[in-house]
Design a protein around this nucleic acid. Sequence first.
DNA 1: TCTGGGGTCCTAGGACCC
DNA 2: TCTGGGGTCCTAGGACCC
Length: 419
Amino acid sequence: MFALADCNNFFVSCERVFRPDLNGRPVVVLSRNDGCIIARSNEAKALGIKMGEPLFRIRDIVQRHNVEIFSSNMTLYADFSRRIRSILRESAPQIEVYSIDEAFLDLRGIDNLNFDAYAKELSVRCRRLTGIPVSVGVAPTKTLAKIAAQLCKSYPKLRGGCFMHRAEDVEKVLKKFPIEDVWGIGRRSAPRLKEAGILTAQDFRMRPEDWVMRRMGVVGVRTWRELHGIPAIGFESVSDPRQSICNSRSFSTEIYDIAELSEQVAKFAAMTAEKLREQHSVCSRLTVFAATNRFHTDDIQQCGHICLPLVEPTDSTIDIVRTAREALAEIFVRGAGYKKAGVIASDIIPRQGCHVSMFSAEHNERHSRLMQAIDQINRTSEGGSVTIASEGISAVKANSHHRSPRYTTCWDELPEVRI
DNA sequence: TCTGGGGTCCTAGGACCC
DNA sequence: TCTGGGGTCCTAGGACCC
C-alpha cells in the first residue's frame, strides 16, 4: 500500500494557524507580486473563486464577501512543510516529498496494519502538532491514494483518513470521480476524453489498454494501470538533483533601463548559482530570457531568450552573474518595457569528479572558497547580506502588500502579545 | 492600473554516423 | 520507372504536476 498525505488548502491553513479568527471565513493567498490566487479556503472556493484567477478580476467578490487576502509568505509555509514532513517520517519507513504540501508514504511490506485507523491517526497527529488539517489516503497505487485523499476533503465523516482497496469500493468511488480530477489527466487530455464519452475515472478504466496507448501513449497507460491497482509510477524516496534550475520573476512595473534590468537578472543568476551549490552541482549552460507584458498587446512586444555555454562547468556566482549579464546585453531591446525576466541553468552535473582544465584549477579553487564563505554568512542572515555588486542594493521589484509575519522563523516579526 | 514560479517526462523530427 | 537500412544524439515543443 501507498499513502498520500495532502495538506488541505495548505497556504490558507498556515495563515489560519496564527489567525484562528479566520476560520469559517473566505481566505485567499496570492502569488508573488500579489497577482493571482494560488490558494483558497473552502469558503473562497464556494464563492466561485478559481485557482490562478487574477486578483483584479475578482475585486467585487472580495469586497462583497469580505474575503481576507494574503500575499504569499513562503518562508512561513516552508517551515510548516518541514514540520509536517518530520511527523510523516516518524510514521512510515520511507517518504517521498512530492511538493510543498504533499508527500507519499511507502507502506509496502506492511500487512498487519489497520490502514484505515492508521490514516485517521496520522491526520489527527499532524493537526494536533502543527495546526494544519491533513488528508491521508491509503490505496494500492499512488494514483488511487491521491483519490482516497481527495475523498477525505469531500467527506468530513472520514475524519481525515481513508483506506480504499476493496474492488467494489474502488469502483463505487471511481464511478463518481470526474476524469479531469485524476492525477495525470491534464487540461488537454480531459476535453478529448470527454468527447470520447469518458466522464469519470471508471469510464477511463473500462477502455481497453491499447485504446489508451493509441490516444495517450505510455503516460496515459501508466495512469490506466494505476487506476486498476497495478503500480506503474515509481516511489522515489531520495530526490535526484535538479536537471535544470530556473529563477524568474515578474516585476511590479515595467523596466526600460538596461542597467536596472541587469541588476535584476544578476540577482536571478546569483540565486541560481546558490541553488547549484546547495545541491553540489555545476552547470555548463545558461539561458537568460526577458519579456515585455504580454497582456499589454498595444505596447512593443519583446520576448528574447539566449542560451550561452559556460567556458567550464561552474557553480560560481561570479562566473554565472557575468555570463548572465552578457547574455542579457545580447537580447535587450531599447524602448521595450520588460515585465518579466529569468535565468535558467542547464546541463547540470555533479560537482564531484567534474572535469576542469589544468589552467582553471586555481581559479576554481579561489572561487570555491569564496562561495563557501558567502554561503555561510548568508545562511545565518535573512535575505542575503553578501552579494555581488552588480546585483545592486535594491530588492526585486515586487508587490507584497498583504504579507503576514514570519511567525515561526523571524523573531522580529512576531506581533506583540496582548494578555 | 492589475495577469506566478517552479519543475519533470515523452515524442517527433532533424542531423549525423556507418 | 528506379534512390538502403539501420543506429544515436540532440532539440524543441507539448503535456503534465504542484
